[in-house]
């Protein structure tokens, strides 16, 4: 098969990020991707653009300003009543029309339910390569080298799309760091019409039912996470993790062994088949550190592991290891953190 880029595709230039938003909020993964896009574009010596599709009620211009602050040079904007709320059909048409018209060499999307739905459809329509769930993006020669974990993270592979454009990739939320904002940066807006009317579209969005727990579980973006592993022995002992989390204002996470046992809700699972997290502090109690768990949390700034087994795999990548019984260590840690922080809080007050 050919690995040469055909002449007519050499005109494709620039790095694009699909800016995902819903009901007035941009998903932070879009800004994380913007940070990565900036690095790629600087290596290639090209521009970065954000792509904004939305309806009359979406503040797309305000989102474009944010995009510049995070590193974009341009914003492609498509506004149409049929783009109010995500639907596959109009978004796929909008995205493919923009790509065909303005020809970017790289197109990045978040590996969310929206990003994956759209990316798969767009890549098929454009007949190009799409690499899923990347953990690292780089430039090799002039092409995108997208690295993703395989076999649960025990191996990594780098995938490239050499003879087709654009080169597409999705990345999970929290895989890349949030870039710094620069309010002095600015850019321009390029608009395009979608050219569809509601009666063209078969699928109707009847309603959106927000999750009841929306504000309670925000694992991916928590600053501190205390995670329960199977080493806690039973559901009741998970209370010790809740206690420590409350003292720290932290979220509670879980291994798959714990969610499968029903000790904690499935949405608290961290890892390959759960959430990717990168808190400043990650405390793992009774967690063995299996590769599928590790890939979801190893980017945390500080990892503390409490485990009775000095040879547990988690000690291979934790920063601080405590060899001990979690049922003894957790209450003491809670108490010590509480008295330390209480003193500080009183001082602030």
């Amino acid at each position: 098969r050919s690995t040469e880029l055909p002449e007519h595709l050499k005109a494709y230039k620039g790095v694009w990020v699909f800016i995902e938003h819903d009901r007035g909020h941009v998903h932070p993964v879009s800004w994380e991707l913007m940070g990565e896009a900036r690095k790629l574009a600087d290596k290639l010596g090209v521009d970065v653009s954000g792509v904004l599709l939305g309806g009359p009620q979406d503040p797309l211009e305000a989102f474009a300003k944010e995009a510049y602050a995070y590193g974009a040079d341009h914003a492609y904007l498509m506004r149409d009543p049929v783009l109010q709320g995500y639907r596959n059909e109009p978004f796929t048409k909008g995205m493919t029309d923009l790509v065909n018209r303005y020809q970017p060499e790289i197109l990045l999307l978040g590996a969310t339910t929206m990003g994956r739905d759209l990316a798969g459809s767009v890549a098929t329509t454009l007949a190009t390569g799409l690499t899923a769930d990347c953990t690292e993006l780089n430039i090799d020669g002039r092409a995108l080298a997208a690295t993703r974990p395989t076999f649960g993270g025990s191996l990594l592979c780098t995938i490239m799309t050499l003879a087709y454009r654009p080169q597409m990739a999705t990345m999970r939320p929290r895989t890349a760091p949030m870039p710094r904002r620069d309010e002095n940066r600015s850019g321009d807006i390029i608009t395009m019409e979608l050219g569809m009317i509601e009666t063209d579209i078969v699928t109707k969005l009847l309603d959106f039912i927000p999750d009841a727990s929306r504000n309670t579980v925000n694992l991916a973006y928590a600053d501190i996470i205390v995670t329960a592993g199977k080493g806690l022995k039973n559901a009741d002992n998970c209370q010790l993790v809740w206690d420590l989390a409350r003292v720290l204002g932290a979220e509670v996470g879980a291994t798959r062994a714990v969610t499968q046992a029903g000790w904690l809700e499935a949405e608290r699972q961290v890892g390959q088949t759960g959430k990717t997290v990168r808190p400043k502090l990650y405390i793992a109690a009774g967690v063995s550190g299996a590769i599928q768990h590790r890939v979801g949390m190893e980017a945390s700034d500080i990892i503390v592991a409490i485990n009775t087994d000095p040879n547990a795999p988690i000690f291979d990548f934790a920063h601080h290891g405590i060899v001990g019984n979690a049922m003894q260590v957790l209450p003491m840690l809670t108490q010590t953190f509480r008295s330390h922080l209480d003193k500080r809080i009183r001082k602030v007050a």
Binding site: T3, S154, L155, L156, C157, T158, I159, M160, D316, F317
Partner: peptide, 20 residues
């Protein structure tokens, strides 16, 4: 269109955990 250009193992963390 996609080409697997490289397969490799994850980098082990260089510094050891501070153990107690």
């Amino acid at each position: 269109p996609t080409i697997v250009s490289k397969v490799f193992g994850p980098k082990p963390r260089s510094e050891k955990a501070d153990m107690q």
